[in-house]
Amino acid sequence: MEAVWNGILTCDYERTRPQASRLEWDLYTTSLISWPTILMDDPRPYGRLRRAGIVDIPEPTHRDLTSTWHRQLASLRYTDHLIARTTRDRTVARAALDRVDDARRRQDVDDLTRALAATTAAFIRVNATHIVNWLLPEQHWERLLTGIFGSSDTALTCLSALQLPAAPGHILATYLQPRHPPVAAAASGVVATARPQASTDRPADLHARRTRAASRREAWTTAALLATAGTDTVVTEVRALSRLLSWAADSEERRNELRGRLLAAAHAWCALTNTDRNQITAADLLGEPR
């Protein structure tokens, strides 16, 4: 996000993702504009599209929507709801991608086109969570934990420990899972064949390390709760932030996997329909007029 200029904040994926295709920019900008609707049922758009890859957000819109969201993030009820709905979105996207893979195997272009439209719509919802990279109230959480622990270093250590995905991140997962089904592996965008042979004897060690990281997360969650014990509102806020930090890390990891699968599917569709993969848009995949 760029600095405020004439009352406007600019989110520029052209700059932050210069190698991305038009389709990827479309997916990011569409998800960005609609994150208030997707994540908190607020119909206000988060800015307007300047062109593929660039969204302009009026500062008051940014301020109102993020402060509304941040207030909600302090509530356990909303936090649980947010986690449930984004988990459901990922499940829907994953199922849609499975249908895409099935249509690809059968080389059924019509089915593939339909499944890809559904997948794209589902992924736009999943992709809305990419705002966790800069819109979470991290500074507020850092101040809160610094106050709780009486030390900025301890607060940062705690925050860092809590930012652990519930399931292994996609890079680690490639090592922990012995084999990928061929289509899924190819579609996931993960180069399974590049995995070094030397790693095959390491899963146990990796599991142990991952278990230690999960223990660390649990320990720091417990420490933060014990530190706030007796002050109900702060206990609630710490419970919420603990869930959200894990959710944010998880969202990023799982979103990345689904994004890789969607792009691989889109490229396969381009090959089958003789379409230029560098020119396609999200609207093309959704079957909408440009």
């Binding site: 860092s160 930012q163 991140g169 890079i171 390390r209 944010a248 990023e252 990345n256």
Partner: peptide, 15 residues
Amino acid sequence: GGPLSHAAIVARELG
């Protein structure tokens, strides 16, 4: 990258 980049997540996972 940032705190949610892949390097960071892998590092936390590995301690």
